[in-house]
Computed example of a mutant assay.
Amino acid sequence: MQVAPRRTGEWWISPAIPAVANAALASLWAFTAFGGWGEQAFCGVDSAHDPTCATGFENAVLSSLAVVIPAVVIMVSALVLRRVRHYPDRLGMMLTAAAFLWVGAEGIVFLGGYLAQPS
C-alpha cells in the first residue's frame, strides 16, 4: 500500500486500500447476515428468541441482496477484467464504489433488524 504524489498537487492511493476495505466489509456483512450475529443482536438468544423478529431480520437480509449482488459483480469484474486491473485509477474507482455498496448493504441489514425488533 502506498500513498504517493503522482504529479504536483495530485495524490495517488493504492488500489489495495479499497480492496482490503471490500474484503472486510464483505466479511462483516456475511457474518451479520448468515453467521447469526445480526439475528442474535436484534432478536435475542435462547429463551428470549423471537421468531417473528427472526423472520423480519431474514427479510432485511434478503432485501440487502439487492445491493450485495452489484457489489460482488463490481468487485469480481474489477479484479478479473484486464482493462480495469491494469489501470489503477479505474481499479480504485470501481473498488471504492463496491465498498460504498457494502456499506449500504450493512445499513439495510441494520435498519431492517432494528425495525424487526419487538417493541
Score class of each variant (00 low, 15 high):
N59K: 14
G9V: 11
A60G: 06
Q40F: 11
S27P: 01
L79V: 04
A26V: 03
L101R: 03
M1G: 07
P118E: 15
G35E: 12
A16H: 06
L65E: 07
L101Y: 01
A26Q: 05
E106D: 09
G113K: 09
F31M: 14
N22K: 04
F42K: 04
R83L: 06
A98C: 08
A16C: 04
A26Y: 07
A19E: 02
M94F: 03
A48N: 09
A30N: 10
V73I: 15
L79E: 06
A66W: 13
P51M: 09
A41N: 14
L62D: 13
P70I: 13
C53K: 11
V109R: 14
V67R: 00
A66D: 12
T32Q: 13
E39M: 03
S77L: 12
H86I: 06
M1F: 10
V72C: 03
D89V: 00
A98I: 08
F57G: 01
E58T: 14
G9Q: 09
N59M: 05
V103C: 06
L25Q: 06
G9H: 02
A21I: 06
W29A: 06
R82Q: 11
R7V: 01
M75V: 12
V80H: 05
G38P: 08
N22A: 03
I69C: 11
Y114E: 07
A97Y: 02
Y87N: 10
V61L: 12
L81M: 13
S47L: 10
A78M: 06
S77E: 05
E58Q: 15
H49W: 13
A41H: 13
V61S: 09
L81N: 04
M94C: 10
L28S: 14
Y87R: 09
V80Y: 06
I13D: 00
A48Q: 13
A71M: 15
R90D: 10
I69W: 07
H86E: 15
G36T: 09
F31Q: 15
S119E: 12
L25V: 11
R7C: 01
P70R: 15
A105Y: 01
A78Q: 05
W102P: 10
V73R: 07
A21Y: 13
A60P: 02
A19F: 03
L81Y: 08
Q117G: 13
Y87E: 10
R6S: 06
E106N: 15
